[in-house]
């Protein structure tokens, strides 16, 4: 009964917010705050009025989203692989983290957007720089969580592996990594949302394609409904990525959720 009510409430909150927003923006008539109906129209015209063969996406949508999402996913995957590899090394090789910790903490404290000029010098302007910003910014949650996760492997699991003489590869692949997987996934999830932010930030400075560039363009041409449409787009993308991630996580970590429920 209570669950049903909360379900209804959750679905109603969206239209209620939209209606209040619409009424307020219409009443104030500020050019900076267009009503959601106009934002939606703009959104539709820019991106969703395409042919069915392109899933209704317009050419402009494909040209804008394609490079952005490509960089986002590539950057996130590179950071994921590097973060897990480095995290395992730091967590399992005795003494390594003591040596490297000050350097890592220093690097971690640097705000990635401020490094854009340095990356410009190091890499070519465009995709390589943007990838570098994303990778540098989102690697930390994966790295830190992986290090924690591989350190926290239950002693009993490792003793079993030792008694039965598992190879080093099997210990890593079948004991340490699966055991650390819940923590690694928590890091990957955080990284994914950070990657979305850094993708936009990296496109705001020195780029000629992508969602960030398109957002900047809308702002510079006083297209405020367009600016808001971009903001909505980013929110929707964040929601979508999170949902997809949770589905993947549910599959990989079903043992974890169930094991905890049964304790």
């Amino acid at each position: 009964m209570r669950r049903a009510t909360s379900g209804v409430l959750r679905f109603w909150i969206v239209p209620v917010t939209l209606v209040v927003w619409e009424l307020l923006t219409r009443a104030t008539e500020s050019p900076y705050f267009p009503p959601p109906s106009r934002i939606a129209t703009q959104f539709y015209d820019m991106w969703l009025s395409g042919p069915a063969s392109q899933l209704l996406l317009t050419d402009s949508a494909l040209d804008t989203f394609g490079p952005s999402l490509g960089r986002l996913i590539a950057g996130w995957l590179i950071a994921g692989v590097l973060g897990i590899a480095l995290g395992v090394a730091l967590g399992r090789i005795r003494g390594l983290s003591e040596y490297t910790d000050p350097v890592l903490q220093f690097l971690r404290a640097l705000p990635p957007p401020l490094l854009v000029p340095i990356f410009f010098v190091l890499f070519k302007i465009g995709t390589p720089t943007q990838l570098a910003v994303i990778v540098f910014g989102v690697i930390w949650p994966v790295l830190v969580n992986t290090t924690d996760g591989v350190r926290a492997v239950d002693k009993g699991f490792l003793e079993t592996a030792r008694v039965f003489q598992f190879s080093r590869y099997d210990i890593l692949r079948r004991v340490i990594l699966p055991s650390a997987m819940p923590k690694i996934f928590a890091g990957l999830r955080l990284s994914l949302s950070l990657a979305l932010i850094l993708m936009v930030v990296s496109e705001l400075v020195g780029s000629n394609s992508g969602i960030g560039y398109s957002l900047l363009y809308a702002q510079q041409t006083y297209d405020y409904a367009g600016v808001w449409a971009h903001i909505v787009l980013l929110g929707v993308l964040g929601l979508l990525f999170n949902a997809l991630f949770l589905v993947a996580e549910g599959r990989v970590l079903s043992w974890h959720a169930n094991a905890r429920r049964n304790v």
Binding site: D154, K155, G156, F157, E159, T160, F164, Q165, F166, S167, D170, R174, V175, P178, S179, M181, W255, H256, A259
Partner: peptide, 22 residues
């Protein structure tokens, strides 16, 4: 403590078969 000795991410048959890889 079987809960710290059997790997919860593996089925029973996988747990039993794992040491045989060696």
């Amino acid at each position: 403590d079987y809960s710290r000795s059997l790997y919860p991410w593996m089925s029973a048959v996988a747990n039993v078969g794992l040491p045989l890889r060696r």
